[in-house]
């Protein structure tokens, strides 16, 4: 066998292997999706989205508290992490030189790797213990610690992709640096930054660990930030480890809803990124 044929055969084999690996990856994803739909679809009905949970043994009821609670927690977390993340990203990209900026960058990257449960413990010790109770605030704080480094990193990377010539064009028009950053640099990178934010939301939307001992959970609706609040992932966890068949069914349904939300957020983010 000459070298040419051998090379052709190697190429064919490697191509087959890589296509197979891609296929397996996708199949696993669809298996999970399919199984969750299979187990969860039966528990989905209008009540699930509109009613509060019922006590054990009482049929019916829904998870509206957890659904709203999840959005509420993410909203609260975004209030802090989006502006802070964008500002840090602007600092790192536009001004970040020298040892301080390197330190900020390093800390931010380390924060990306901190396990979710650890941010939960941290929020527990700095907010829950001093306040004396679980609260939406503590939960949102834990989530925002997860979102912050993601938003910071994506903002920094996207701003760095804005060509230097645009900044110079703006400065040369007599537009001050701060206005150049807001009106030219940020607005050029706007859609990418929004995509980054949505991916950060999708990332924390399904987290239960940071909420277990911060937001804790609540069988009722509340908008008070100093009260415990329910969330889909935590409610899913509680229902899944319970011994009741009815709750298991609801846990599957909430898993399906949670996956749906994360998936939709991801898809919207990607469509948004492509449209620019």
């Amino acid at each position: 066998m000459n070298r040419y044929t051998r090379r052709k055969i190697t190429e064919k084999i490697m191509f087959f292997l890589s296509v197979m690996s891609a296929f397996i990856g996708i199949v696993v994803l669809f298996l999970i999706l399919g199984y969750v739909i299979y187990k969860g679809a039966g528990g989905l009905n209008i009540d699930f989205f509109t009613k509060l949970p019922t006590p054990v043994g009482v049929p019916g009821g829904g998870m509206v508290n957890a659904l709203i609670g999840s959005f509420y927690l993410i909203g609260l977390a975004s209030l802090f992490s989006i502006p802070a993340g964008i500002l840090i990203g602007v600092y790192l990209s536009e001004f970040g030189r020298g040892p301080f900026a390197s330190a900020v960058r390093f800390v931010s990257e380390t924060l990306t790797g901190v396990p979710a449960i650890v941010t939960g413990i941290f929020a527990y010790s700095v907010i829950v213990i001093p306040m004396g109770r679980f609260s939406a605030l503590a939960g949102a704080f834990a989530l925002s610690l997860l979102m912050l480094p993601i938003i910071t990193k994506s903002t920094e990377e996207l701003l760095k992709m804005v060509p230097e010539t645009l900044r110079e064009a703006s400065l040369a028009l007599g537009i001050p640096r701060w206005k150049t950053i807001i009106r030219v640099v940020l607005s050029t990178a706007k859609s990418g930054i929004i995509t980054g934010i949505m991916l950060a939301i999708a990332r924390v939307g399904g987290e239960a660990a940071p909420l277990l001992f911060t937001a804790f959970g609540n069988s009722y609706m509340t908008w008070r930030p100093d009260q415990p609040v329910a969330s889909l992932p935590v409610q899913l966890y509680v229902y899944a480890i319970s011994p009741y068949e009815d709750w298991h069914q609801k846990a599957w349904a909430s898993a399906l809803v949670l996956m749906g939300i994360v998936l939709i957020t991801n898809i919207v983010a990607r469509i948004y990124a492509r449209d620019k």
Partner: peptide, 27 residues
């Protein structure tokens, strides 16, 4: 100073997030 001394660069650099109209009046 830069408002009185304008500059045109080597590579055309209109602001991509702005329309033709907005580019003209950007400054």
């Amino acid at each position: 100073i830069r408002r009185r001394i304008g500059m045109v660069f080597q590579k055309p650099n209109p602001f991509p997030a702005m329309t033709v109209y907005e580019n003209v009046v950007a400054g």
